[in-house]
């Protein structure tokens, strides 16, 4: 049974629905990411879970208890705001102790709990600092500590790393992952950064236009996206229009246009395909090789990425260049491309 259970939740702000009949199950104790482009409705969904917005329809339940009618201050969730929302008039200590007032703890116990939390987020010794004297990374830690100290059933993170610079973001990714393992609380993070989602989360839900497109592990999302939108959103990918020619045994033969007729493993076709169906062949740049023979093209541009280089190859009969990733430069501008059939996947033509 899922820990957070969202059923048929919709929300509109006087226009088309921002969240459209979403179903989502989040298991306990995991790091779950809600990934999607700006305006896809993910933040609204998060805010409905926290109680800051009310669903127009559908139910949100946490640990079996329906939350719809419960105001935010009584919900077993806590949130790390995108802005961090550190109270500017309070010290670090008072920020973290803010949500513990109702427990009426004795002073030394309160102090112990806050200090322990400070140690968890590695902010020892900063408890007397004012909110204005903190760096971006420190503010993020205070926001985390302030939410975690209440031991919520569900920690909600709204683009928690977006406000940090690149190096700090990478360091905090590692820490956030460790922190989740350490405290064991279910984390639900909203992000538009696919790299962040893939590297942090156990499971990722990809969202667009108010709908959830796919829920899967990061590896599965990358290797077996269930539709063009997901494939496109996560990493670079090349698409080719094709039609199914024959289905025999564990191979499917398709007419792949520029790619010619190829037979790919049946397991690579990610939908129920029948002979004559249109489909979209997709292949990641790193799966395409330079070869002596194969599809002929010309090198149009290249981007050096450090370890690998990304090449744009222009081929006759296709307007977009094909994107190829390789460790080495090809010997000349005129190249031939090799598409291993096992690396091709087939998606529904939408």
């Amino acid at each position: 049974m899922a820990y957070l259970s969202i059923r048929q939740v919709s929300k509109a702000f006087g226009g088309p629905p921002v969240v459209d009949a979403v179903d989502l199950e989040v298991p306990q104790g995991r790091f779950f990411a809600l990934l999607g482009p700006s305006g896809c409705g993910k933040t609204t969904l998060l805010r409905m879970i926290a109680g800051f917005e009310t669903p127009d329809s559908g139910t949100i339940a946490i640990d079996g208890e329906v939350m719809n009618a419960i105001p935010p201050h009584l919900r077993p969730t806590n949130m790390v705001f995108q802005s961090y929302a550190i109270f500017p008039h309070l010290s670090v200590f008072d920020n973290i102790a803010y949500g513990l007032r109702k427990l009426r703890l004795p002073k030394n116990e309160l102090k112990a709990r806050v200090e322990a939390m400070l140690a968890t987020v590695r902010l020892e010794g900063l408890s007397g600092r004012g909110a204005g004297q903190l760096s971006g990374g420190q503010r993020q830690r205070v926001a985390l500590a302030r939410a975690l100290v209440r031991q919520p059933k569900l920690l909600l993170l709204d683009e928690p790393l977006a406000a940090l610079d690149k190096r700090l973001r990478e360091a905090m990714q590692v820490e956030l992952r460790q922190l989740q393992r350490q405290v064991g609380i279910t984390f639900l993070m909203v992000t538009h950064d696919q790299e962040e989602a893939l590297s942090l989360a156990d499971q990722v839900a990809v969202m667009n236009n108010g709908k959830i497109l796919q829920v899967a592990s990061p590896r599965e999302l990358y290797e077996r996206p269930n539709c063009r939108e997901v494939a496109d959103f996560i990493g670079e990918i090349n698409f080719f229009h094709a039609t199914v020619k024959a289905v025999d045994g564990d191979r499917v033969t398709v007419n792949g246009g520029l790619l010619g007729v190829v037979a790919l493993p049946r397991a690579n076709i990610l939908f129920d395909a029948a002979v004559g169906d249109a489909l979209l062949l997709a292949i990641r740049p790193e799966d395409i090789g330079f070869a002596d023979a194969g599809l002929a093209g010309t090198l149009a541009a290249s981007t050096f990425l450090g370890e690998t280089t990304l090449f744009q190859v222009q081929v006759a009969g296709r307007s977009d260049p094909i994107v190829v990733s390789n460790y080495f430069d090809p010997p000349s501008k005129d190249v031939h491309l090799n598409f291993p059939p096992d690396m091709l996947i087939g998606l529904p033509e939408s």
């Binding site: 201050h73 705001f81 929302a85 500017p88 109702k102 302030r146 939410a147």
Partner: peptide, 14 residues
């Protein structure tokens, strides 16, 4: 910052 009031509600205050 409106987030501050939401943060307070989120931290259990009415």
């Amino acid at each position: 910052d409106r987030d501050l009031e939401e943060a307070s509600a989120d931290l259990g205050e009415d």
